[in-house]
Design a protein around this nucleic acid. Structure first.
Lengths: 162, 162
DNA sequence: TTATAGCCCATAAAAACCCATTGTATCCCC
DNA sequence: GGGGATACAATGGGTTTTTATGGGCTATAA
């Protein structure tokens, strides 16, 4: 898998009273260059208390990868079960949301709860996907490198002063 | 990884009131020969108080390397976390900035702070990547070879006289 | 009705773009 | 080789466009 357009950079945006958030323009441009759909897929991150996000084209790619994995190890009895579980997570436990002409999504209430997103959303590019964090939770997580926390603190400070 | 086009040479350019800096033409030509994108990626240097810079193609290459590493040692539980951390540092802690037709970038405020860049930016080619320094910090750093400091002094002097 | 999702409009700040100047290196012709 | 003409680099300044965000309006569904 070699994607040429990667998600990169960070931004801290507001979630307004209606639950709307602007997806940063630099992330949107990757979504559109990858597949053209003005849509993103949201999922609970497997390891961190945040959301994982990507474009529909990447979701399709991940699905294809799972399929190939199944065909290889079809002999194992556990493999089939694991395939079913992963498939459920990849599709049933995700939500696809379109963004409007101004680049905003309406954060689905379930995802908002799962990601514990309050009134600020920290966007972090991670290459193939990007993450959406409640910045307070990121600062509290011991697994996050200090340098990255510095960035989160900078984004928070930047927002206070302007 | 064998890149045929390497960053080399040095230059001292001004950061103007809007935060714009010209990327030296000899560095831009390497970026464009490597991948064609008129864009550079900025990151805090891991060891020195300066910025590290490269082209998007090099970033993608680094990413592919990480991916391969993961697939090999997927068995380990710690490996997954370390992968997440490295990915965050490689993508969330960096910023991709395009340069305009005159070869200038807008130095992002976060990077400007992280690299402690004031109103002069010293560019140093280092092969696969290049560095951007506040020249005063380079002259103060005891780890920098005296010969390199001489070059920095020359660039500063050169700018004074013209 | 009563929320709610999808629109459209408005705005302030920031970023991207265009044009102009200047100095320097390069080329070319005599 | 000298001397101008030329091309390109770095930089200043103004103008237009994009972004993020707030607010209201309307069709729709529970």
């Amino acid at each position: 898998m070699a994607l040429e357009h990667l998600f990169q950079g960070s931004a801290l945006n507001a979630v307004d009273g209606k639950g709307r958030v602007s997806i940063p323009a630099f992330l949107r441009s990757v979504v559109e260059r990858r597949g053209g759909a003005r849509t993103i897929v949201l999922a609970k991150h497997e390891a961190f208390p945040c959301l994982s996000a990507y474009d529909p084209a990447y979701a399709a790619l991940k699905h294809a990868k799972l399929e190939r994995l199944l065909e290889k190890e079809e002999t194992s009895p556990d493999a089939a079960l694991e395939y079913q579980q992963r498939n459920l997570m990849a599709f049933a436990a995700t939500e696809e949301v379109p963004y409007d002409s101004s680049g905003r999504i309406l954060m689905p209430p379930m995802m908002r709860r799962k990601g514990e997103i309050a009134d600020l959303a920290l966007f972090l590019g991670t290459g193939e996907t990007f993450q959406i964090w409640n910045p307070d939770l990121l600062l509290k997580d011991p697994r996050i490198p200090e340098d990255l926390k510095d960035i989160a603190r900078f984004r928070i400070e930047e927002r206070r002063t302007s």
